[in-house]
């Protein structure tokens, strides 16, 4: 994952489009268990916890919030419900 993060960062710095194939720890691998999620910014600018198995595994390098993998970043869709 740090390697993918570096590739994405380097691409963004050089204004080059990048795609990264991520792999998170999974239980089912078919989209039912919600284990393998990571924060990804959608086209609407909203961050969602997306499943790497079926929403990915390939995401645009500039859309994954690499440094915040393993967290639910502030403002993520539906995160208020969990924090309240």
């Amino acid at each position: 994952m740090p390697m993918l993060a570096s590739v994405a960062a380097e691409s963004m710095a050089r204004k080059v489009f990048s795609q990264c194939s991520v792999e998170e720890s999974m239980a089912c691998g078919i989209g039912v268990c919600m284990t393998c999620v990571l924060p990804v910014i959608g086209e609407d600018g909203i961050t969602r916890m997306l499943r790497s198995c079926v929403d990915g595994p390939i995401f645009r390098g500039d859309r994954v919030r690499w440094s915040e993998i393993g967290t639910v970043p502030e403002g993520t869709w539906g995160s208020e419900a969990l924090r309240s």
């Binding site: 998170e24 720890s25 999974m26 239980a27 268990c33 919600m34 284990t35 393998c36 999620v37 990571l38 969602r48 916890m49 993998i69 393993g70 967290t71 639910v72 993520t76 869709w77 539906g78 995160s79 208020e80 419900a81 969990l82």
Partner: peptide, 27 residues
């Protein structure tokens, strides 16, 4: 309400089983 669920890791394996802590992620 929509719910993001918890941070990862959300799953741990154990002998003949597993643990999950998803946090009811849902729309």
């Amino acid at each position: 309400a929509p719910r993001s669920g918890r941070a990862t890791p959300r799953m741990a394996e154990t002998p003949s089983g597993m643990l999950n802590s998803i946090g009811l992620q849902g729309p």
